[in-house]
Every structure is written in C-alpha cells, then in structure tokens.
Design a protein around this nucleic acid. Sequence first.
DNA 1: ATTCAATATGCAATTTATTGCATATTATTC
DNA 2: GAATAATATGCAATAAATTGCATATTGAAT
Lengths: 177, 177
Amino acid sequence: MSLKHAILVMLDKEPSSGYDLMKQFNSGLGYFWNAKHQQIYQQLKKLSEDALITCEEEPQHGKPDKKVYRITEKGQQVLKQWLHEPSVPAKINDALLVKIWGGHHLTPKALLKDITEHKNRHTETLSSLRQLERAFHDLSDAEKMHYQLPFLTLRRGILGEEAWLKWAQEAENTLKK
Amino acid sequence: MSLKHAILVMLDKEPSSGYDLMKQFNSGLGYFWNAKHQQIYQQLKKLSEDALITCEEEPQHGKPDKKVYRITEKGQQVLKQWLHEPSVPAKINDALLVKIWGGHHLTPKALLKDITEHKNRHTETLSSLRQLERAFHDLSDAEKMHYQLPFLTLRRGILGEEAWLKWAQEAENTLKK
DNA sequence: ATTCAATATGCAATTTATTGCATATTATTC
DNA sequence: GAATAATATGCAATAAATTGCATATTGAAT
C-alpha cells in the first residue's frame, strides 16, 4: 500500500531521480522499506500520471542525463493525509525463521550454516549503522535537532540488529550442543 | 517467493485445512510470515494442482465440513530442496518507520500517538510470547528437545519484541522533550 | 425466533512486486 | 582500443498479494 508514500516522503525532502531513490532504498530508508528498481520506476510513472510529482530531464556532465522528480502541491496533500492516518503494522517475511521452525529435516550443522551467513550480513549492517550513529554524535546541537527523526529510525535499526545478533548467539549455543 | 514453502512446512508437520493454516498464520508462524486467508486458499489450490499436496474432504460434527490437506512425496521433495537452499534475507516493510523518517510535517504529539498504538500491540504480542515461553519451560526434557527448533523461533520473537519496546521508550523520551 | 460469533471456503478484479530482458553514457583501468 | 563498473532508465510478462464481495453451517446467547 505504500511504496508510493515512501517515495513521496523522499521527494518531499529532496527532488531526486529514480536512480537516486534506488540508492536510498539500498541503504538508508531501504532498511525499513524494500523496493527494487523496477518498482521505483513504475511508481514514478504512476505518480507522474496522477500529478503527485513532476518530472524534469536534467543533463549532467560526466554521467547520463537523469529525470529529476519533484513533489507537487497535490502530492504534498496526499502525503500529509497519509502521515495523519494510523500506520499499518510492519509486515515481516522471514524465510530463515520459517525454515528453523520446520527444520527437523535439516541437520543442526546445515541450520548453523544458514544462520551464520545471515549473521555476517547483520553484523555488517550493524557496523554501518553504528558508523552513522557516530557521525550523528559529532554534529552540532542544531544539526542534531534537525536530524532527530531520522536518528530515531537509525536507533531502531541498531537495536533491531543488536537483538538479532543476540538471538543468533543463543541459536548457535543451542544448535552446537 | 515462499508462502508455498511455509505451507509445505506446516503440512509436513501436520495435515490441516486452509482454516487451520490461517489460524496458525494469525498466531505462531504468522509472526514470521504474513498471509491472508485468500492467499492461503489460492496457494492450496495451486499446490494441489501441482500434486505437492492432496486434499480430502472431512465431515465434522458441530462444524462445517473441512478440506484436509496432506503433503505428498513430491511435496516433501520440493520442501527438502527448499530447506537446503540458502534462505533469502528477511523483507521488512514498516510504514511507521517511514513515517518517522519523514515525519517533520507531523507534531511530536501525533507521532507519539502512532507509536503508542504500535506499542500496545507489541506489548500484547510480547506477553503472549512470554506465556508460550513459560509453557515450554514446564515441559519434560524430552519434550523440550522435541520443540527445540520452534522454541528458537519463539526466542527470536521475544528478543525482537523486547528490542522494539526498548526503542519505543527511547523514541518517547526524545519526542516528549 | 433471531442475532451473533466462530468455523469454513471461495470467485473475480485489481494492485503490487518480481523476473528477465534491453539499452545507452561516461570514467577508469588494463 | 577494449573491457569493466557505475550511472541511468525502461518494457513486457508473470507471479504474488490485496480487496471486495459472497456463501453456508453450527452453537450459544438474547
């Protein structure tokens, strides 16, 4: 229901191309909302048709031209309305947990391997989130105030990853027996 | 990519009707994999067509008849193959976090309200997970062994919910200033 | 008797998401 | 000069998920 709104939120902060958005979905916001590049381009098209955003081609030096999208008045209205609605609960689709839940066909070793691979990714994510956190702490008070809300989402990421890794430790202890 | 596999996992443990599965998706496994009843019935149909499961109508007393599905040999093969593949990273779609990330249009009060509503749901979930955990601890050693893997997923749920609530506390402290 | 909640299943239409191509520019490296 | 990586965008087809109905049985409560 709302890749649309995620894009509006992003464009409301800063006009961007599809490619810019894609990069954000692969880092910052992407931590909380998944989208592949196809989905983004499709939504941009749709949002343009509905006049919630406008598009302007912008020549670049050293890089292919890009289409810069901007949120419109109408888009802002739609965004604000969405912001005021109660947000729907997060949706989780976690294949690893499904596998563990029904994993009696697998050896503990096979499960551990799968868990370890995930652990590596979570460890990397956590470390990059912590780097962002340190950068935040170095900001001036005014800047900290300005980034207060994104910082909260960063904290959510950090606490989430820490909890994941703590669990992985438990799981490893159990499965190694 | 794998509501299909989640259903096979469930049917491998125990033959069930669509309604049975739906209830599980609204409690146990549903914590890690979302599915609405329509999706379940549609998948059951497809899985039957592909001969990964069979269907048998079972009359009941006191309740409408139900269709009991069982996993077939072929289904077990498909399931085992899936279990041996590395599992895809979990997908998160969390509208609340998107909203907070771009929530400068909202008052802290409005954000707090949204967070509080989510907090209530998470509190309830945590409390029911903890109840399951206590029930597990009362089991015999043999039974504990038997439920080892589902217990790990339960622990994941508990650690995840605790982390969420810890974050909510931080967010409230920040936003109440 | 009638309403309500739980049980039980499904069709049809639409919206979203995914997969598999496909293309073009420029900078950098070999 | 040729290959590669990063930038930048897209079509077409399919698969998956959601929404909005729609129906039927039974038990328990009013």
